[in-house]
Nucleic acid binder design. Structure first.
Length: 356
DNA sequence: CATTCGTGGGT
DNA sequence: TACCCAAGAAT
Protein backbone atom coordinates (compact mmCIF):
# COMPACT_ATOMS: atom_id res chain seq x y z
CA UNK A 1 0.00 0.00 0.00
CA UNK A 2 1.22 3.43 -0.81
CA UNK A 3 -0.46 6.77 -0.81
CA UNK A 4 0.35 10.39 -0.30
CA UNK A 5 -1.83 11.78 2.45
CA UNK A 6 -1.64 15.45 1.61
CA UNK A 7 -2.42 15.02 -2.07
CA UNK A 8 -5.16 12.48 -1.51
CA UNK A 9 -6.79 14.40 1.29
CA UNK A 10 -6.68 18.12 0.70
CA UNK A 11 -7.78 20.38 3.48
CA UNK A 12 -11.31 20.74 2.21
CA UNK A 13 -11.91 17.01 2.01
CA UNK A 14 -10.35 16.52 5.41
CA UNK A 15 -12.70 19.07 6.95
CA UNK A 16 -15.72 17.40 5.40
CA UNK A 17 -14.69 13.99 6.71
CA UNK A 18 -14.18 15.38 10.20
CA UNK A 19 -17.53 17.14 10.19
CA UNK A 20 -19.42 14.11 8.92
CA UNK A 21 -17.85 11.84 11.52
CA UNK A 22 -18.53 14.18 14.44
CA UNK A 23 -22.09 14.89 13.29
CA UNK A 24 -22.69 11.17 13.14
CA UNK A 25 -21.13 10.70 16.57
CA UNK A 26 -23.32 13.36 18.18
CA UNK A 27 -26.40 11.37 17.23
CA UNK A 28 -25.24 7.76 17.15
CA UNK A 29 -22.09 7.55 19.26
CA UNK A 30 -21.80 5.52 22.44
CA UNK A 31 -21.76 8.16 25.14
CA UNK A 32 -23.18 5.96 27.88
CA UNK A 33 -20.26 3.62 28.48
CA UNK A 34 -19.50 3.40 32.21
CA UNK A 35 -15.91 4.68 31.87
CA UNK A 36 -16.90 7.83 30.03
CA UNK A 37 -15.56 10.86 31.87
CA UNK A 38 -12.35 12.70 32.59
CA UNK A 39 -10.97 10.53 35.41
CA UNK A 40 -7.64 9.38 34.01
CA UNK A 41 -7.43 6.51 36.50
CA UNK A 42 -10.75 5.06 35.39
CA UNK A 43 -9.88 5.61 31.75
CA UNK A 44 -6.63 3.72 32.29
CA UNK A 45 -8.36 0.72 33.87
CA UNK A 46 -11.00 0.58 31.15
CA UNK A 47 -8.51 0.91 28.30
CA UNK A 48 -6.38 -1.92 29.63
CA UNK A 49 -9.43 -4.12 30.14
CA UNK A 50 -10.59 -3.36 26.62
CA UNK A 51 -7.38 -4.60 25.00
CA UNK A 52 -8.49 -7.49 22.78
CA UNK A 53 -11.64 -7.82 24.86
CA UNK A 54 -15.17 -6.95 23.82
CA UNK A 55 -17.08 -4.14 25.48
CA UNK A 56 -19.82 -6.43 26.78
CA UNK A 57 -17.26 -8.63 28.47
CA UNK A 58 -15.50 -5.70 30.08
CA UNK A 59 -18.44 -3.81 31.58
CA UNK A 60 -19.14 -6.10 34.58
CA UNK A 61 -15.42 -6.46 35.32
CA UNK A 62 -14.91 -2.71 35.08
CA UNK A 63 -17.73 -2.07 37.51
CA UNK A 64 -16.40 -4.62 39.97
CA UNK A 65 -12.90 -3.23 39.73
CA UNK A 66 -13.92 0.40 40.23
CA UNK A 67 -16.25 -0.58 43.03
CA UNK A 68 -13.37 -2.29 44.82
CA UNK A 69 -10.64 0.18 43.77
CA UNK A 70 -12.31 3.52 43.00
CA UNK A 71 -9.05 5.47 42.82
CA UNK A 72 -5.27 5.13 42.81
CA UNK A 73 -5.04 5.40 46.58
CA UNK A 74 -7.17 2.31 47.06
CA UNK A 75 -5.24 0.44 44.38
CA UNK A 76 -1.94 1.28 46.10
CA UNK A 77 -3.04 -0.82 49.06
CA UNK A 78 -3.91 -3.86 46.97
CA UNK A 79 -1.71 -6.90 46.59
CA UNK A 80 -1.02 -8.65 43.32
CA UNK A 81 -3.31 -11.48 44.41
CA UNK A 82 -6.09 -8.96 45.12
CA UNK A 83 -5.87 -7.60 41.57
CA UNK A 84 -5.68 -11.09 40.11
CA UNK A 85 -8.82 -12.08 41.97
CA UNK A 86 -10.78 -9.21 40.46
CA UNK A 87 -9.36 -10.11 37.05
CA UNK A 88 -10.29 -13.79 37.26
CA UNK A 89 -12.18 -14.82 34.14
CA UNK A 90 -11.31 -11.78 32.05
CA UNK A 91 -8.17 -13.31 30.54
CA UNK A 92 -4.78 -11.95 29.46
CA UNK A 93 -3.67 -11.87 33.09
CA UNK A 94 -0.43 -10.08 32.32
CA UNK A 95 -2.63 -6.99 32.07
CA UNK A 96 -3.53 -7.32 35.74
CA UNK A 97 0.10 -7.86 36.64
CA UNK A 98 1.02 -4.72 34.72
CA UNK A 99 -1.69 -2.72 36.47
CA UNK A 100 -0.24 -3.80 39.79
CA UNK A 101 3.30 -2.94 38.65
CA UNK A 102 2.11 0.42 37.39
CA UNK A 103 0.55 1.27 40.74
CA UNK A 104 3.97 0.82 42.32
CA UNK A 105 5.73 2.82 39.61
CA UNK A 106 3.29 5.68 40.07
CA UNK A 107 4.00 5.76 43.77
CA UNK A 108 7.74 5.64 43.35
CA UNK A 109 8.31 7.71 40.23
CA UNK A 110 5.25 9.92 39.78
CA UNK A 111 4.62 11.00 43.34
CA UNK A 112 1.42 8.99 43.55
CA UNK A 113 -0.32 10.76 40.69
CA UNK A 114 -1.17 9.24 37.34
CA UNK A 115 1.05 10.90 34.69
CA UNK A 116 -0.67 13.16 32.18
CA UNK A 117 2.13 13.37 29.65
CA UNK A 118 1.83 11.05 26.64
CA UNK A 119 5.41 9.80 26.75
CA UNK A 120 5.21 9.14 30.48
CA UNK A 121 1.98 7.19 29.97
CA UNK A 122 3.51 5.25 27.08
CA UNK A 123 6.42 4.25 29.30
CA UNK A 124 4.16 2.37 31.72
CA UNK A 125 4.03 -1.43 31.46
CA UNK A 126 1.17 -2.82 29.40
CA UNK A 127 0.51 0.49 27.70
CA UNK A 128 1.35 0.68 23.99
CA UNK A 129 0.73 3.33 21.41
CA UNK A 130 -3.04 2.94 21.09
CA UNK A 131 -3.70 2.67 24.83
CA UNK A 132 -1.44 5.62 25.62
CA UNK A 133 -3.19 7.71 22.99
CA UNK A 134 -6.63 6.77 24.28
CA UNK A 135 -5.72 7.58 27.88
CA UNK A 136 -4.10 10.90 26.95
CA UNK A 137 -6.82 12.04 24.60
CA UNK A 138 -9.86 10.82 26.55
CA UNK A 139 -8.58 12.49 29.70
CA UNK A 140 -8.19 15.81 27.91
CA UNK A 141 -4.41 15.90 28.09
CA UNK A 142 -3.48 15.85 24.45
CA UNK A 143 -4.42 15.14 20.86
CA UNK A 144 -3.22 11.67 20.02
CA UNK A 145 -5.04 9.35 17.65
CA UNK A 146 -5.40 5.60 17.86
CA UNK A 147 -5.08 2.61 15.57
CA UNK A 148 -6.97 -0.26 17.15
CA UNK A 149 -8.71 -3.06 15.28
CA UNK A 150 -11.72 -0.87 14.55
CA UNK A 151 -9.73 1.99 13.07
CA UNK A 152 -7.50 -0.34 11.09
CA UNK A 153 -10.52 -1.94 9.46
CA UNK A 154 -12.29 1.36 8.90
CA UNK A 155 -9.33 3.20 7.40
CA UNK A 156 -8.07 0.34 5.27
CA UNK A 157 -11.53 -0.03 3.77
CA UNK A 158 -11.75 3.72 3.43
CA UNK A 159 -8.65 3.59 1.26
CA UNK A 160 -9.69 0.27 -0.26
CA UNK A 161 -6.15 -0.82 0.38
CA UNK A 162 -4.61 -4.04 1.44
CA UNK A 163 -2.60 -3.27 4.53
CA UNK A 164 -0.20 -5.74 5.98
CA UNK A 165 1.55 -5.41 9.27
CA UNK A 166 4.67 -3.81 7.85
CA UNK A 167 2.69 -0.89 6.46
CA UNK A 168 0.72 0.17 9.49
CA UNK A 169 2.69 3.39 9.68
CA UNK A 170 0.63 4.82 6.84
CA UNK A 171 -2.60 4.07 8.66
CA UNK A 172 -1.24 5.67 11.82
CA UNK A 173 -0.42 8.72 9.77
CA UNK A 174 -3.88 8.88 8.24
CA UNK A 175 -5.56 8.30 11.60
CA UNK A 176 -3.68 11.22 13.10
CA UNK A 177 -4.18 13.36 10.00
CA UNK A 178 -7.95 13.08 10.07
CA UNK A 179 -8.18 13.58 13.83
CA UNK A 180 -10.25 16.59 14.83
CA UNK A 181 -8.36 19.59 16.19
CA UNK A 182 -11.16 20.77 18.43
CA UNK A 183 -12.78 17.54 19.62
CA UNK A 184 -10.08 14.83 19.60
CA UNK A 185 -11.66 12.86 22.44
CA UNK A 186 -15.04 12.60 20.75
CA UNK A 187 -13.33 11.89 17.47
CA UNK A 188 -11.38 8.83 18.57
CA UNK A 189 -14.53 7.54 20.21
CA UNK A 190 -16.32 8.15 16.92
CA UNK A 191 -13.60 6.22 15.09
CA UNK A 192 -14.22 3.20 17.28
CA UNK A 193 -18.00 3.52 17.24
CA UNK A 194 -18.09 3.67 13.47
CA UNK A 195 -15.76 0.70 13.25
CA UNK A 196 -17.76 -1.28 15.77
CA UNK A 197 -21.32 -0.32 14.84
CA UNK A 198 -21.18 0.57 11.13
CA UNK A 199 -17.96 -0.58 9.48
CA UNK A 200 -18.35 -4.04 10.98
CA UNK A 201 -16.09 -6.86 9.90
CA UNK A 202 -19.02 -8.73 8.43
CA UNK A 203 -22.00 -7.12 6.80
CA UNK A 204 -20.92 -3.50 7.19
CA UNK A 205 -23.78 -1.00 7.17
CA UNK A 206 -22.29 1.21 4.49
CA UNK A 207 -25.54 3.04 3.81
CA UNK A 208 -25.40 4.35 7.38
CA UNK A 209 -21.78 5.42 7.18
CA UNK A 210 -21.22 9.18 7.49
CA UNK A 211 -18.27 9.10 5.11
CA UNK A 212 -19.46 6.58 2.54
CA UNK A 213 -19.28 9.20 -0.20
CA UNK A 214 -15.56 9.62 0.49
CA UNK A 215 -14.94 5.89 0.91
CA UNK A 216 -13.05 4.01 -1.79
CA UNK A 217 -14.91 0.80 -0.91
CA UNK A 218 -18.34 2.33 -1.54
CA UNK A 219 -20.71 1.16 -2.90
CA UNK A 220 -20.29 -1.97 -0.94
CA UNK A 221 -19.07 -5.07 -2.69
CA UNK A 222 -17.75 -7.98 -0.69
CA UNK A 223 -14.68 -7.99 -2.92
CA UNK A 224 -13.62 -4.43 -2.23
CA UNK A 225 -13.97 -4.72 1.53
CA UNK A 226 -10.35 -5.55 2.11
CA UNK A 227 -9.41 -7.36 5.24
CA UNK A 228 -5.99 -8.76 5.68
CA UNK A 229 -6.45 -12.11 7.40
CA UNK A 230 -4.58 -12.37 10.61
CA UNK A 231 -2.01 -15.10 10.92
CA UNK A 232 -3.61 -18.48 10.95
CA UNK A 233 -3.06 -19.82 14.41
CA UNK A 234 -2.23 -23.44 14.86
CA UNK A 235 -4.20 -24.95 17.64
CA UNK A 236 -2.33 -27.50 19.61
CA UNK A 237 -4.22 -30.21 21.37
CA UNK A 238 -3.28 -30.81 24.95
CA UNK A 239 -4.68 -33.43 27.22
CA UNK A 240 -4.03 -32.62 30.82
CA UNK A 241 -4.98 -34.42 33.99
CA UNK A 242 -6.13 -32.49 37.01
CA UNK A 243 -6.92 -33.70 40.49
CA UNK A 244 -9.42 -31.88 42.68
CA UNK A 245 -8.40 -32.49 46.27
CA UNK A 246 -10.98 -31.80 48.95
CA UNK A 247 -10.38 -32.18 52.65
CA UNK A 248 -13.70 -31.57 54.38
CA UNK A 249 -14.45 -28.38 52.55
CA UNK A 250 -10.85 -27.25 52.14
CA UNK A 251 -9.44 -27.48 48.64
CA UNK A 252 -5.78 -27.99 47.82
CA UNK A 253 -4.59 -25.34 45.35
CA UNK A 254 -1.14 -24.35 44.22
CA UNK A 255 0.35 -21.51 42.22
CA UNK A 256 0.43 -22.23 38.52
CA UNK A 257 3.93 -22.59 37.14
CA UNK A 258 3.80 -23.25 33.42
CA UNK A 259 5.48 -20.79 31.10
CA UNK A 260 3.44 -17.63 31.17
CA UNK A 261 0.03 -19.18 30.75
CA UNK A 262 -2.27 -18.23 33.64
CA UNK A 263 0.80 -16.78 35.34
CA UNK A 264 0.05 -15.60 38.86
CA UNK A 265 -3.11 -17.67 39.26
CA UNK A 266 -3.84 -20.75 41.36
CA UNK A 267 -5.16 -24.14 40.35
CA UNK A 268 -5.74 -27.69 41.41
CA UNK A 269 -2.62 -29.75 40.66
CA UNK A 270 -2.28 -30.29 36.91
CA UNK A 271 -0.23 -32.87 35.04
CA UNK A 272 0.62 -33.31 31.40
CA UNK A 273 -0.45 -36.92 31.41
CA UNK A 274 -2.22 -39.49 33.49
CA UNK A 275 0.87 -41.36 34.66
CA UNK A 276 2.43 -38.20 36.07
CA UNK A 277 -0.73 -37.63 38.03
CA UNK A 278 -0.78 -41.18 39.34
CA UNK A 279 2.84 -40.94 40.42
CA UNK A 280 2.17 -37.70 42.21
CA UNK A 281 -0.89 -38.97 44.06
CA UNK A 282 1.07 -42.03 45.09
CA UNK A 283 4.07 -40.16 46.43
CA UNK A 284 1.82 -37.80 48.35
CA UNK A 285 -0.18 -40.66 49.79
CA UNK A 286 -3.55 -39.58 48.54
CA UNK A 287 -4.05 -42.30 45.95
CA UNK A 288 -6.22 -44.26 48.36
CA UNK A 289 -8.75 -41.43 48.44
CA UNK A 290 -9.23 -41.09 44.72
CA UNK A 291 -12.82 -41.46 43.56
CA UNK A 292 -13.61 -43.81 40.72
CA UNK A 293 -15.84 -41.38 38.89
CA UNK A 294 -13.98 -38.98 36.62
CA UNK A 295 -15.05 -36.55 33.97
CA UNK A 296 -13.49 -34.60 31.17
CA UNK A 297 -14.16 -31.35 29.43
CA UNK A 298 -12.48 -29.14 26.88
CA UNK A 299 -11.31 -25.60 27.40
CA UNK A 300 -10.48 -23.68 24.27
CA UNK A 301 -8.04 -20.80 24.11
CA UNK A 302 -7.37 -18.74 21.02
CA UNK A 303 -4.27 -20.75 20.24
CA UNK A 304 -4.46 -23.91 22.34
CA UNK A 305 -7.16 -26.49 22.82
CA UNK A 306 -7.15 -28.31 26.13
CA UNK A 307 -8.88 -31.44 27.23
CA UNK A 308 -8.90 -31.86 30.98
CA UNK A 309 -9.29 -35.23 32.64
CA UNK A 310 -10.65 -34.51 36.08
CA UNK A 311 -9.98 -36.82 38.98
CA UNK A 312 -11.59 -36.31 42.37
CA UNK A 313 -9.85 -36.95 45.62
CA UNK A 314 -11.73 -36.58 48.90
CA UNK A 315 -9.32 -36.76 51.80
CA UNK A 316 -10.78 -38.14 54.98
CA UNK A 317 -7.75 -38.50 57.19
CA UNK A 318 -5.69 -35.39 56.73
CA UNK A 319 -2.79 -36.53 58.92
CA UNK A 320 -1.91 -39.43 56.70
CA UNK A 321 -1.28 -37.46 53.50
CA UNK A 322 1.93 -35.64 52.73
CA UNK A 323 0.60 -32.38 51.37
CA UNK A 324 1.62 -28.95 52.57
CA UNK A 325 -0.57 -27.48 55.28
CA UNK A 326 -0.41 -24.06 53.62
CA UNK A 327 -2.33 -24.79 50.42
CA UNK A 328 -5.88 -25.42 51.67
CA UNK A 329 -8.66 -22.97 50.93
CA UNK A 330 -12.39 -22.56 51.37
CA UNK A 331 -14.07 -21.82 48.08
CA UNK A 332 -15.91 -18.90 49.65
CA UNK A 333 -12.72 -17.42 50.98
CA UNK A 334 -10.26 -17.41 48.09
CA UNK A 335 -8.14 -14.27 47.94
CA UNK A 336 -6.32 -14.84 44.68
CA UNK A 337 -7.05 -15.47 41.03
CA UNK A 338 -8.05 -18.74 39.42
CA UNK A 339 -8.38 -19.57 35.71
CA UNK A 340 -11.75 -20.02 34.10
CA UNK A 341 -11.21 -23.76 33.75
CA UNK A 342 -10.74 -24.02 37.51
CA UNK A 343 -13.91 -22.04 38.07
CA UNK A 344 -15.80 -24.43 35.78
CA UNK A 345 -14.37 -27.42 37.62
CA UNK A 346 -15.46 -26.07 40.99
CA UNK A 347 -18.96 -25.37 39.69
CA UNK A 348 -19.20 -28.89 38.33
CA UNK A 349 -17.85 -30.25 41.61
CA UNK A 350 -20.49 -28.35 43.55
CA UNK A 351 -23.26 -29.79 41.42
CA UNK A 352 -21.94 -33.32 41.84
CA UNK A 353 -21.72 -33.14 45.59
CA UNK A 354 -24.52 -30.63 46.09
CA UNK A 355 -21.88 -28.46 47.65
CA UNK A 356 -22.02 -24.86 48.71
C1' DC B 1 8.49 -9.96 12.59
C1' DA B 2 5.91 -13.99 14.31
C1' DT B 3 4.25 -15.78 18.82
C1' DT B 4 2.24 -15.67 22.94
C1' DC B 5 -0.73 -14.29 25.90
C1' DG B 6 -7.85 -15.99 27.79
C1' DT B 7 -12.30 -15.81 27.14
C1' DG B 8 -16.63 -15.33 24.86
C1' DG B 9 -19.31 -14.25 20.82
C1' DG B 10 -20.26 -14.43 15.90
C1' DT B 11 -20.64 -16.91 11.50
C1' DT C 1 -18.01 -27.82 13.81
C1' DA C 2 -14.22 -25.10 13.19
C1' DC C 3 -12.55 -20.83 12.65
C1' DC C 4 -12.14 -15.86 13.23
C1' DC C 5 -11.20 -12.30 16.35
C1' DA C 6 -12.14 -8.36 19.84
C1' DA C 7 -10.70 -0.59 22.31
C1' DG C 8 -3.09 -4.77 21.81
C1' DA C 9 1.33 -5.28 24.09
C1' DA C 10 5.53 -7.61 25.03
C1' DT C 11 9.11 -10.36 23.45
Amino acid sequence: MSFEIKSSYPSKKKSLIRKNILDWYDINGRSDLPWKGQDIYKIWISEVMLQQTQVQSVIPYYKMFIDRYPNLESLFKASLNDVMKIWSGLGFYRRAENIYKTSIIIQEEFDGEFPKNYNDILSLPGIGRTTASAITTFSGNGRYSILDGNVKRFLSRFLSAEVDNSELNSLWELSQYLLSDTRPSDFIQAYMDIGSLVCKKSKPLCYECPVNKQCNSYPYQPSNISSKPRKIKIKEKNIWSLVVINNKGQFYLEKISYDNLWKGLYSSPVFHNQSDLMGWTESHKIKAYMESNTWKFTHKLSHIKFTFNIILCNIKYHKKVSLSDDNWYNLSDIDFGIPKYQDKIFNQYKSIYDYN
